[in-house]
Nucleic acid binder design. Structure first.
Lengths: 216, 216
DNA sequence: CGACCGATTGAAAATGTTCAAGGCAGGTGG
DNA sequence: CCACCTGCCTTGAACATTTTCAATCGGTCG
């Protein structure tokens, strides 16, 4: 289920891609974050909207006993930080050196153009969340990893090769698996000649159609 | 007509039974659906917004090989049907006799008041989806069932007792478990004296604090 | 060179699933 | 009114997938 594969220029991502004009209107501010730096924290007040200008962002949540969950990743052009509560239930960190545009949510809500984009982005995000729930709820480990690779290739606007800006632990926490299982499935997909790994972060898709078949 | 016909005596489903004034503005239409009747189907065009007036709605998705996934349930006052694609990726069915308000999405977007409600509802739904992803990604079977019971009690505005308008299969597909596991966990929670089941759909919470501890 | 970090691999263990059977309540028809 | 069927839920036992625990590999950095 790939509902985000629109050839929208804002959703293309080549490793350190920049989304031209990905801002949040005249009242927004740009901020830079180093790799692994926190953009906002769990429990922090949530009245800002963010948009990735360049780089990549990870949304995470830590359970009391230490179990970690990655809710998603955001690339250039994408909005994030929208939550219903007063406080963030999740935290956001930069996966690599990243620039984001930040604005008070109230200000954005007055700008018709940005607001429209925000709606579109939100609707797309809802679809992504639904697809991801399906993955977490009913897919096998192998299907999850295959789906993840296809999703990433898609969001990078590529078909044949992809770069993973996140490590295995992030992937595992995103897919609801352990790091070992992710590793095993990557190895299996490679053994099955569907993909080829130059190194853990560079994947070449050898048989896209077959990989997609693995997604379900 | 508003009672949840489970073929059992008048079951009360307190607070969110009917949401007074839960409509979608002057351009909206009311529609009634019988138990298990389809409100919209997977693949159907998605340009309408829905709001539950009374009853309960289930959002489901069927995978090609028959695996089923329940994305959520909606009760009186709640919006549903918002999707980013042109077509619905999910279908919606009435859990019991249900009345919904329906409007063209474009019309709703012109009504300031409804639009505001829609934003709030959407943000809340996003939070719910995030919480649910965490559940699917990292919680054990027991934690899932306990979380589900607490969530349902919460949404019914109760602390001590709750009514489940859906069957075990729906719960299982919502929690990413099998019907047998759900049943076993319900039995376990009862054996542990945290809950008590009058019948499969009527649950009394005997020790709310302990049940909440089970949620994580 | 040695230490360290992330990724991979292997074997044992656990959690949840599958398959199979049985129980209970409601509805139907004799 | 009772017998029986049906649907839904529960229970049990074997099985499978994924996790856990532990060891190793390979590259990078000091």
């Amino acid at each position: 289920m790939r509902s985000f594969n629109t050839a929208s220029p804002a959703s293309t991502f080549a490793p350190p891609a920049v989304a031209p004009g990905a801002d949040l209107g005249p009242m927004s501010v740009r901020m830079s974050f180093a790799k692994e730096e926190e953009i906002y924290a769990q429990e922090e007040e949530a009245d800002l909207v963010y948009r990735v200008v360049s780089g990549a962002v990870r949304i995470t949540c830590l359970m009391a006993d230490g179990r970690r969950h990655v809710a998603g990743f955001h690339f250039a052009g994408e909005f994030f930080g929208l939550e219903s509560g007063e406080q963030h239930a999740f935290s956001a960190e930069a996966l690599c050196d990243t620039v984001v545009a930040v604005a008070k949510r109230r200000l954005v809500e007055r700008d018709g153009e940005i607001e429209r984009l925000l709606w579109i982005s939100t609707a797309r995000e809802m679809s992504r969340l639904h697809a991801h729930m399906l993955l977490l709820s009913r897919k096998t480990a192998c299907e999850r990893v295959a789906t993840f690779l296809v999703e990433m290739a898609d969001r990078q606007g590529r078909q044949d090769s992809l770069f993973l800006p996140m490590g295995r632990q992030d992937i595992a926490d995103y897919l609801g698996l352990t790091i070992e299982t992710v590793s095993r499935m990557m190895t299996k997909l490679q053994a099955d000649r569907l993909i080829e790994m130059e190194d853990p972060r560079h994947v070449r898709i050898r048989h896209g159609a077959a990989l997609m078949d693995c997604c379900e």
